[in-house]
Structures are given as structure tokens and as C-alpha cells.
Design a protein around this nucleic acid. Structure first.
Lengths: 229, 229
DNA sequence: TCAACGTCAACTGGATACAATTTACTTGCG
DNA sequence: CGCAAGTAAATTGTATCCAGTTGACGTTGA
């Protein structure tokens, strides 16, 4: 996933992103510029740029003169992200059913095999691989814009899962990945989309299950209107 | 369109974006950090941050140690952007047919009326309004993620048009906007999508080449005044 | 005891200074 | 006269520095 240009900013960017996705940095956690910079041995300038990018990706939020925090997507936000993700991934499927590149199936199956080697483990690696399957699908369309957006929503979904889900339970995910490949190979777009919907629905569903506190902001914003001055 | 946080960076960001969209800054034009900063009366730091954001939006590209340039989307890239845009806008229509918010139609028609007041003029205003119609549609879905992506592709499409189209010919666009509203009101999603497809297809269809030059200073001096505190 | 006010520390917003890299021009040699 | 190498100018990459803002803590008065 995007080993960008060989600049320090990009390096810090990737590192922080991984740390967030792998849940080392928990949602809501503060990210003071000089603390982070100290850790990585770079100046605040670099961290600053990296944080700006992360904010654009929706993985962190920054409040003026307060600093950056790991994003805490509300349930509403989560729902919206999943909605968009479903739309985008359906488009991916539609396109791949029309035209799958040369070694597309080989690459997909190689990826699934890789996922199977970490089957059962809920560690950072399986989280990452599960996401990368969807990104790989998008890459096979050859549409770079689509790749970027899919990457982004997949990342944000990972963050959401880390907040709301008790486990990624990647077992069933791998099976469904295989089924999606089969459906695409059969040129059966509706079936592939249906599986994908179920796949994402299951993911989103697990998020609903674990009843948990929503972010303070989203809770209070609901009541806040009443004492608006 | 996103009057972000009240920070200088955001101000410069918005200004540059407008300048690009309104074709004051032509594709391929260089954007030296200190030249721009000088014009706006801010330091390179600010400009730099703004350029990073613009790069994320796909409106500029930066080459290491070379600087930033207004993006020059290739025809292939243009095709891909339109593909994604079509997908996203279809989703918008699908959602709006299911549920249109309270004063949705009022807002849409107000916007169309506004577009009609500049009918026939191919100036910056009509370009901006044409784009904002689509953003407004997205906003009515209430899905902020969708809004962001639609905004982005609409902006990039404006840039593409400024490269390849000889004129936006907004006349027919306004009519089609009305037709889309009508179709949505009738709950006829397929028809609305069909019109939208035609609408975007027509936009994408006008593909001719053109090139010209102008000095950075004279262009930016026009936008710079607005930063006056 | 509690609330309001004032001071203080921490951190970000922004500017400037310095280092590294690339480009372009010039000069010298074949 | 042309090409190549070296050098200088321009511009970005990075670090450090100063100022403004915000939140927290402690103090004081009712």
C-alpha cells in the first residue's frame, strides 16, 4: 500500500497510519507533534505534514490550537462510510466482470493463500491482509482514482472495526473472498455483489453488536441544540 | 464549498483551488512556494501546507525537489475520474429517490434559478455553479463521506474541462439539472440516472485540446486581495 | 463548599534560517 | 561548432525559533 515518495513525511505518514490501523494508537488518543517527532527522530515540521495527510484520510482529526487526535468515527459516520464503500466495491466488481486483467486471478488467489496462512489469528497482520484484498480488487480495475477511494474507505473501516467490533473473525472473511473471486470468474456480477454486500454487511454487523459508548461529541451534539445561544 | 477552519492555510487552499478551477491558473503551470507566498503575503510554510492538500485532492502534483504544478490530467485519467464520478452520482440519485430531506427540492430549485441568472455566460461563476449543483445533490443525502468524494471528483472534472473542452456550454446543463430534479421527484431513479449519465457523458464528450500561457503574479494578484485582514 | 477569576504551562500556528538537490548556464576541450 | 563537465542560481526539504491560543490548576471571595 503506497510506499509513497522517499521523503521523511511519507515515512512518518505510513508509520502512523499503520500504528492506527493496527490499533497501537487507540481512537481518541492524542498525537502531540513534538512527542511523535521525538519518537521518530524527526522535527515537528515532518510530523505536521504527516498529520495533515492523515486528517485528509479521515484517520485523525485536528482541532485548532488543540492538536491532532486519532479519529473516533461515530456510528452515524461508520454507517456512511460503509454505504460509500459498498457503492465503490460494487463498481469494482461490475468493472472486473467486464474485464479482468491478464494475471488477475493468479494475484487474487495468491493473496487469498496468503490470508489463509494467518487464518485464525486476529493479529494486525490478518487485519491488514483482509483490507488489502479489497484494495487489490480495486487495483485490478486499473482505475487509480477508484483505488484511492477504496483504499481510503477500507482504512477507515479498519479503524471503525477497531472501535466497535470485538473481533475481525477473519475466518469467514477468507472464505467469502474466495467466493467473490469465483463469482467474478463466472461473470456473475449480481452474485458477486450479493456476496460482497453480505461480506461488508457482516463486517458492519459485527460493529453494531458490541454496544459501546459513542464519542462524547456525537452524544452531546444531540442534546446541544437545546441550549444553543 | 468548505469554508474550512479559519486558518491561513485553509484560506490559501481555497483561494488556490478557486484559481485553478476558474482556469486562472492553467494546467501545467508552476506554483513556486515563495512566489505564491509573496503574492498572498504569507510564508512558504502556509503555501506548502495548502499545496499538500491540493495534491491530495488531485488538483496539483508535486515532484520531489522540483515543486508543485497544476495537474494535467491525461485523457486516461480523465476517463477514470468520470467513471468514478458516474458511479458516485448514481448512488446519490439512488439515495435521494429513497429519501429526500425536508426542504430538498426548494434548495435544488433555488440553485437552478441561480444558475439561470448567469445563463449563456461561460465565465468562472457559471463553471462554479454547475459544479455546486452536483455537490448540493450529494449534500442532500446527508452522507458526508459521499459529499467529500463527489466534491473532489467534481472539482477534478472542472479541471479536466478546462483542459479539454472548448466551452462548458452551461445552457443545456441547466436544463438537464432541472430534468434530474424532476426525475428524482417522480421517484424514477433509472430515468434520473440515465439523464445524469447523458449529462456527464455530454460533459466528457467535449474533448478538444488548447494551450496558453500567463504570468503567475498577475493572476494571483487578483486573488490575493481577499486575504487582507 | 462551590464557583468564578486569574495565572501558568503546554502546545499548536506561523516565520525564518539553513541544508540538500536539481536545473540551467557557461566554459573549455575535442 | 558541438558536446561535456563543472559551477552557480533557484527552489524545495528540514529544523529551529517566536508568538498566540487554549486548557488546567490553584486561589480567592461569597
Amino acid at each position: 500500500m503506497s510506499e509513497n515518495k522517499n521523503t521523511l513525511t511519507s515515512a512518518v505518514h505510513d508509520l502512523l497510519r499503520r500504528a492506527i490501523i493496527e490499533q497501537a494508537l487507540k481512537p481518541g488518543m492524542r498525537l502531540p507533534e513534538d512527542t511523535v517527532g521525538e519518537q521518530f527522530g524527526v522535527s515537528r515540521t515532518i510530523v505536521r505534514h504527516a498529520l495533515v495527510r492523515l486528517e485528509n484520510e479521515g484517520l485523525v482529526i485536528t482541532r485548532r490550537n488543540r492538536g491532532a487526535f486519532v479519529a473516533e468515527p461515530s456510528r452515524e459516520e461508520a454507517k456512511q462510510i460503509f454505504e460509500v464503500r459498498k457503492c465503490l466495491e460494487n463498481e469494482v466488481i461490475r468493472m472486473l466482470c467486464l474485464r479482468m486483467p491478464e494475471n488477475g486471478y493468479d494475484r487474487l488467489q495468491a493473496h487469498v493463500r496468503q490470508e489463509e496462512t494467518v487464518r485464525g489469528k486476529d493479529g494486525p497482520v490478518s487485519i491488514r491482509l483482509a483490507g488489502e484484498f479489497h484494495v487489490l480488487l480495486a487495483e485490478l480495475t486499473g482505475n487509480h482514482v477508484l483505488v484511492r477511494y477504496v483504499s481510503e474507505v477500507v482504512l477507515r473501516c479498519s479503524l471503525i472495526m477497531s472501535m466497535y467490533a470485538r473481533s475481525h473473525s477473519s475466518d469467514c472473511a477468507v472464505d467469502e473472498h474466495s467466493q467473490i473471486i469465483d463469482a467474478i470468474r463466472a461473470g456473475d456480477a449480481p452474485r458477486a455483489m450479493s456476496i460482497m454486500d453480505h461480506h461488508l454487511g457482516a463486517v458492519a454487523g459485527r460493529a453494531e453488536l458490541s454496544a459501546q459508548e459513542d464519542s462524547i461529541q456525537s452524544i452531546l451534539s444531540h442534546y446541544g441544540k437545546e441550549l444553543a445561544q
